[in-house]
Design a protein around this nucleic acid. Structure first.
Lengths: 342, 342
DNA sequence: ATGAAAGCGCTAACAC
DNA sequence: GTGTTAGCGCTTTCAT
């Protein structure tokens, strides 16, 4: 808790009786020729002094920090937590350090985070945009900072973006249900303020075939207590649904809503899946641990995160590839929350 | 994706036809007297040029970055995710930016993270240590960087540390169960490689009173897929437990294990709570959404995180207070996973 | 009210 | 093989 020793490379060179330049050369072990005993002296001095390089100086000089800024809507949401984990793994493996920011599902905070990362002169940015708008995109492009988008698609398909085929995911969910004999299917959603949500719903409608679809949508989520609020949204949707109850199955916009809904059903004495079937979207870790275990459409965010990091770092290191928008394919994982009607 | 415009304060001053010094003064709107039209010209130039200050230069010069480094064992674990959320809120409110690192439950990575934060010259560090050892503590103290610990207690009670009364939490769990008439109670644990786990177990034993306690412990977790692996640990513990099954209730070392265990019980046809009672420890968001809803001992990590951030920032800003180790009190939250035996 | 200049800690030419 | 030096972008005395 004291003032800080502030040992600089200069102190090291002084103690080793040499110049700053030579000290720098051995401390960074660049291959530059230095006599063995000089080298030893410098290393010893650095060690004795407890020298820790000041990256601010280095980054200022070299123009690279080897840091990557990443902004996600929430660190609380398991979906993003897993993406962040993928990013971290890839960055660490490649010698970069990720710096995480949460935009709290708030576009202004998202912009503020991006501004911060630009000011800090990150080497690149990994951005999970909330809105479909363009302001943040323009900001990073104006700053000329390498950025790859992930999760939400961006309007310009030429921008590097690792996303999922959300439409297909929605389609798979409803198609699966119809293949199980369901003919009236509800869709539990949050507001359509994200492209991914719209796409999932559109896919859902497309996969209905002959079946009938019913949309139940909860009002805007409030920031902060996100996980809980999504659970609660699931509960509230159940209550609206129960007013008419004209469906035998529901697909939820994400697993959190699905789990909240299953819980609410069960509390109200309605058994899943025998009385009502539910399928989620995402396949977060908790989906396997719900009771009953949730049937869902898997969109592994860990893979998305590491893929995005890979693309960014490749581009940072001069590997030129045309990326543009890539949509990873979802896959269905059958568990115990759907009842066969045929 | 381009090279970057690199507009510096120098460019701004040139365009505004003034000196760097004056530009700096108005750009930071220090109260320094500057003529109104000069001010206007500088602001306009900055805007037209799209100037973004380079914090590296600023931090190098001033010696403060207004950044706080935080390291937690895992960003995936909801318990830490919530702590991180609390930290972020407090930091943002006070004008600091948190930089999150995950040590992946790995002491070496923990040290590496701390080294990184020191090299980056963070203003302070918030550290959730894994091991009870001293190496990391010595490292930060040698670097002279303000750090406050949280979650795990540290040996030196004079160090600022925001933790929980883990012993009391364990005690409350078993005492609650005995008050419900349980006389044989199992404890499902991970390895005792953290003080918090040892303390919870000791508390558990202390709260048993006349009752009998049985310890079931899973081998070391592997890093990475943490959430899933804790669920699985819960499942495996159930299998060991079922070999003897000489208890009517179990308390789990954390909610994740508890939820995994409840699931495994249910899959094996054993009903919670009628056949077996389970109580968790932590009260993560998901605890309310398990089926049945989990009775648990609440140790709100959000509060712990924001408290830790507050203490750090206070000390950074010269508010001198004796803190030392503070242990926040746990509280019991009754839900539906315990059966009354009286 | 404004500007010149000295660094913060570091790297990378460029000498020798 | 080693040292000198010129900045990287910024703040901040100290003059004027």
């Amino acid at each position: 808790m004291k003032k800080g020793n502030r040992i600089t490379i200069r102190d090291v060179s002084l103690m080793a009786n040499t110049s700053i330049a030579t000290a720098s050369r051995v401390l960074n072990n660049t291959g530059y020729p230095v006599s063995p005993d000089m080298k030893a002296r410098i290393l010893k001095a650095a060690k004795d002094l407890g020298y820790t390089p000041n990256m601010l100086g280095k980054a200022l000089k070299t123009g690279k920090s080897h840091e990557i800024g990443v902004v996600v809507p929430s660190l609380l949401n398991p979906y993003y937590a897993e993406a962040v984990n993928g990013i971290e793994r890839e960055c660490n493996a490649r010698g970069y350090t990720p710096v995480f920011c949460s935009s709290d599902n708030n576009p202004e905070k998202e912009l503020a985070n991006v501004e911060f990362l630009i000011r800090m002169r990150m080497d690149g940015i990994l951005l999970s945009k909330i809105e479909y708008g363009d302001d943040v995109i323009q900001r990073v492009s104006r700053a000329g900072i390498s950025t790859v988008y992930f999760d939400q698609p961006v309007a310009d398909e030429n921008l590097p973006c690792i996303t999922y085929d959300f439409f297909e995911a929605g389609r798979m969910a409803s198609e699966y249900l119809t293949s199980r004999g369901h003919r009236r299917i509800a869709f539990f959603s949050l507001p359509f303020d994200r492209q991914s949500r719209r796409s999932r719903y559109e896919g859902f409608m497309a996969g209905l075939g002959e079946a009938e679809g019913y949309l139940y949508q909860s009002p805007a989520e409030n920031e902060g207590v996100e996980v809980l609020s999504e659970f609660q949204a699931g509960e509230r949707l159940v209550d609206s649904f129960l007013k008419d109850r004209n469906a035998t199955a529901v697909v939820a916009i994400n697993d959190l809503i699905a789990i909240g809904a299953m819980n609410a059903f069960s509390k109200r004495g309605i058994a899943v899946p025998s009385d009502i079937s539910v399928v989620g979207l995402d396949d977060i870790s908790f989906a396997a641990m719900s009771n009953p275990a949730l049937t869902t459409v898997k969109q592994p965010s860990y893979e998305m995160g590491s893929a995005a990091a890979k693309v960014l770092i490749d581009s940072l290191e001069g590997v030129e590839e045309e990326v543009g928008t890539v949509r990873m394919p979802p896959s269905l994982v059958e568990r115990d929350s759907v009842c066969d009607l045929v």
